[in-house]
Design a protein around this nucleic acid. Structure first.
Length: 291
DNA sequence: AAGAAGTCCTGGGCGC
DNA sequence: TGCGCCCAGGACTTCT
């Protein structure tokens, strides 16, 4: 479940550890994780240095001269930097010994970058031109931690939407980077029920949600991301934000604010965790006001 | 056109 | 102990 904070944490590790490293050899599995031909990756990258590493939404981009290697970690993907000849290599060093390794970039320095993904929901693509990359990223909405994410911009994105607020937050073409964990946490922070129709959000709700989104993401980054099971940073270490979660994964436990029991329901086909007291549906609120 | 639903994928947890 | 069932979910495709 790598979402923006997890991807940002990986990004920071990669920037520090592989920027300037020159590729020596490449291993790619035959998995469907690769959405462009693997041969391009294994034939073109050797000899090229990593000039920079960037993030767009939940995607990581490794820049090699004019080529851009795009990695999405999906649900269980991880990018870990290790020293060569570790236990991840087979006896003959031609392929991975550890399970679920789908890509290995070996650098001249001796370092290696491993892509591991047990559930194979991740994806890796190679773009040859900046134009193709920007076209690919055009589908993505606004970056919630960018200067462009203003209240005015957020209101414009919300305008005339009809669906429920939770699926809206999960849709990467509106605001990118939120997944199930941080969407649930942002809704809790702003006291909004996940089934609330976007069209019935009051201006005060919108303002609270607008402030909650970057707040939960920044907190997630500050704690190095959330590790439920698979997430690891580029050093192979777990995150710490799971200790800070208010609702996600806390079904049946007491709300940290009001001690009501946190509930889990399906919204838009995905599990949603919320506090029934702190996050009421608009209809329930109205009934409360009448009583 | 936008929203809803179905699909992919496998490890882990649970019931019997 | 072991088998089988079901759940987890990001993004893509297909349907309405």
């Amino acid at each position: 479940m790598p979402e923006l904070p997890e991807v940002e944490t990986v990004l920071r590790g990669l920037k520090e550890n592989i920027t300037g490293e020159t590729v020596k050899t490449v291993f790619c599995s035959s998995s469907r994780i690769f959405r462009t031909d693997q041969s391009g990756i294994s034939e073109l990258l050797p000899g090229l240095p990593v000039t920079q590493v960037e993030r767009r939404g939940k995607y990581l981009v490794l820049y090699f001269s004019t080529h851009r290697l795009v990695v999405h970690l999906g649900m269980t993907g991880s990018l870990v930097v290790k020293n060569e000849n570790g236990p991840h290599f087979g006896r003959h060093s031609t392929g991975p010994a550890e399970r679920h390794i789908h890509m290995i970039l070996s650098f001249r320095s001796g370092r290696v970058l491993l892509y591991r993904d047990p559930r194979m929901f991740g994806r890796i693509l190679l773009f040859y031109e900046e134009k193709d990359l920007s076209d690919y990223f055009n589908r993505l909405g606004i970056e919630p931690l960018s200067a462009g994410f203003t209240l005015t911009a957020f209101k414009r994105i919300l305008a005339r939407r009809k669906g429920q607020v939770k699926p809206f937050l999960m849709n990467q073409s509106h605001v990118c980077g939120l997944g199930n964990i941080y969407a649930d946490e942002a809704l809790f922070e702003s006291g909004i029920h996940p089934e609330t129709p976007v069209s019935s959000l009051e201006p005060a709700d919108i303002r609270r949600l607008y402030h909650a989104i970057p707040r939960v993401l920044e907190e997630g980054i500050r704690f190095g991301g959330t590790t439920f099971r698979d997430y690891r940073n580029s050093a192979g270490k777990e995150g710490g934000f799971q200790e800070m979660l208010n609702v996600y994964g806390r079904e049946g436990l007491e709300c940290r604010k009001c001690r009501s029991l946190v509930r889990k329901i399906q919204v838009g086909g995905r599990s949603s965790h919320f506090c029934p007291h702190c996050q009421k549906k608009p209809r329930e609120l109205r009934i409360d006001r009448l009583l």
